[in-house]
Design a protein around this nucleic acid. Structure first.
Length: 366
DNA sequence: AAGGCGGGGCT
DNA sequence: AGCCCAGCCTT
């Protein structure tokens, strides 16, 4: 069978399937480039089910490019809290300001211009052009990569530049000139619903007859597994440092892990015995604060992309007159009830829940 | 070319 | 415990 013939059959079978089985998702009920943009940024490396609530809340608070551009970054981070990859929120905020300044508040409708907006790469630009502007442009997200790799039985690491280049060419060849809006959503739905990473539902797949991987019975071998580097594990001392009913929090620098979020001071230690010392010395060095004691009150674990952490919680009372004398990072004393006003990392939310559980237990004992 | 960047759900 | 998710950016 010829290449062009296969492509035509894939397109028509895919669209027929999509009309019957495609998902109804919030961002498919609009053609507003701003809303499509917000959804695409949220969906980077994030599941559809996770995004839906954030999508509605975000647009309620920031209904337009100008509303977003005029907001405080902290307010944006607060709405983004818990969604992860916080650079996306910073880029969205800065991107809105770029759009107001450079394009009079309207998202540009060309690939070259979209790629100038922070956080928009080739695939996200392709999605915005296809879905909001109906301009035929390929995308290459995780779904499309997997579907295309199976359709053409591409072996090898799908993240390697060589394979990616082939995938981009094939995705481009498959992308139709007309009706790109439906096609792009259709191929993503197929990847999410049928052509899944593990145990693809080939019996119900509309592309079964055109799929080289299915023909060879390779569908479970593609994508080929990549090498697993085990994540290191860190022991971290975390201080709930109290003074007259208030707690010390600090703001992380915007360029690192959890950038821009607030949290409880925490310091890594090589050994368990060294935890409290690391905390006491760190707080003294970074904030010039001397703590009276540190009482271990609990432990919790948390996983990040490249490492896992065991947090060792310490309750640390300070003298009433103790002051912040240095500011290695922005820092302040806040009442527990004020914590909800700050964007906090998921791990720090866990700490708060743990603390309230502990205080409930203690009040029961008394 | 490789690594950093979250969090949660599924196996 | 490992894998993956509607990727992008920096080095």
């Amino acid at each position: 069978m010829g290449h062009a013939n296969k492509i035509e059959k894939v397109r028509s079978a895919l669209l027929r399937w999509y009309r019957a089985k495609g998902r109804d998702l919030p961002w498919r009920r609009t053609r507003d480039p701003y809303r499509i943009w917000v959804s695409e940024i949220m969906l980077q490396q994030t599941r559809v089910e996770t995004v839906i609530d954030y999508y509605h809340r975000f647009l309620q608070v920031f209904p337009s490019v100008t509303a977003l551009a005029g907001a405080d970054l902290e307010a944006v981070l607060k709405v983004w809290e818990g969604l992860g990859y916080y650079a996306r929120a910073r880029n969205l905020h800065r991107g809105a300001q770029t759009i107001v300044e450079e394009w009079d508040g309207e998202l540009p409708g060309t690939l070259q211009d979209l790629l100038c907006i922070p956080g928009i790469g080739r695939s996200t630009a392709g999605a915005i052009l296809s879905l909001a502007f109906e301009i035929s442009t390929p995308i290459l997200d995780g779904n499309v990569k997997r579907v295309v790799a199976r359709l053409f039985a591409l072996r090898g690491d799908l993240k390697s530049p060589g394979v990616e280049q082939k995938l981009w060419k094939l995705s481009g060849a498959l992308t139709p000139k007309r009706g790109v809006h439906h096609y792009t959503q259709a191929i993503m739905d197929l990847g999410a619903m049928i052509c899944t990473p593990r145990k693809p539902d080939c019996p119900h797949c509309p592309l079964r007859n055109e799929c080289k991987a299915f023909h060879l019975q390779w569908q479970e071998k593609i994508p080929s597994p990549t090498k697993k580097n085990s994540r290191p594990h860190h022991q971290v001392a975390l201080g709930v440092i109290r003074k007259r009913g208030r707690i010390l929090i600090y703001q992380r620098p915007s360029d690192g892990l959890l950038g821009g979020l607030w949290g409880f001071p925490n310091y890594r230690s090589r050994t368990r015995k060294g935890l409290l010392r690391a905390l006491v010395q760190g707080v003294r060095k970074d904030y010039g604060i001397r703590m009276e004691t540190g009482n271990p009150v609990g432990i919790l674990s948390h996983g990040y992309t490249h490492f896992t952490v065991t947090f060792h919680l310490f309750e640390c009372p300070c003298r009433d007159g103790e002051k912040i004398r240095k500011r290695a990072f922005p820092a302040k004393w806040v009442y527990p009830g004020e914590l909800k006003n700050y964007p906090l990392a998921s791990s720090d939310r866990k700490v708060i829940r743990k603390l309230s559980a502990i205080s409930r237990q203690q009040s029961v004992k008394r």
